[in-house]
């Protein structure tokens, strides 16, 4: 289990599925502008956030990702017209399902970042790292709490 395998003060590893036309451009812009951010994210480039299958995200968590980020174009701006709407629809129900598989919802995020928002990209990575660390502390606390109630542990 995630919370048991990680040590205190570990560095979360975050997988980010980002779309080529908006968020990837923003990430490039952050690079060109030398905006610094935490090295925890691993970018997987897709052409459109609509390509992101919910099974990718579940797979990532299964393989040990601490956090997963999906980032695409703002509503109305999708390079392929409506891909980001499909992404939103899928991620909305996935977000509700993940806690039922024991994944703290703070470990997952769907966001929109446009190509000119280099700073916003960098900040979103930093804030995701914080968020995942918070999730870890929450889960750890919950496990500790459960250890103290004999009948409730599984």
């Amino acid at each position: 289990m995630w919370a048991e395998e990680r040590e205190e003060n570990f560095e979360p590893k975050i997988i980010a599925f980002i779309c080529n036309w908006c968020t990837y451009a923003a990430a490039d812009l952050a690079g060109v502008s030398r905006i610094q951010y935490l090295p925890n994210v691993r970018i997987i480039r897709v052409m459109c956030s609509g390509r992101v299958d919910p099974s990718f995200i579940v797979r990532a968590f299964l393989e040990g990702a601490d956090g997963v980020l999906v980032s695409g174009c703002w509503p109305g701006d999708c390079h392929y017209v409506s891909g980001n709407e499909e992404a939103k629809r899928r991620m909305d129900f996935l977000e509700k399902i993940l806690p039922m598989a024991g994944i703290n919802p703070k470990r997952f995020k769907l966001q929109w970042v446009s190509a000119s928002e280099g700073k916003a990209w960098a900040e979103s990575v930093d804030s995701m790292v914080e968020q995942v660390k918070t999730a870890y502390i929450e889960d750890k606390k919950k496990l500790e709490g459960l250890k103290n109630i004999p009948a409730a542990t599984a």
Binding site: M1, S55, F61, P99, M100
Partner: peptide
């Protein structure tokens, strides 16, 4: 079917049992 997503979810279930939370639903 469904790219094995449900299988992955059951697997996660087994791994993360104490953290499962269905309160909202």
């Amino acid at each position: 079917a469904h790219k094995g997503i449900f299988q992955s979810l059951y697997h996660l279930d087994a791994e993360n049992a104490p953290l499962i939370n269905r309160e909202e639903w």
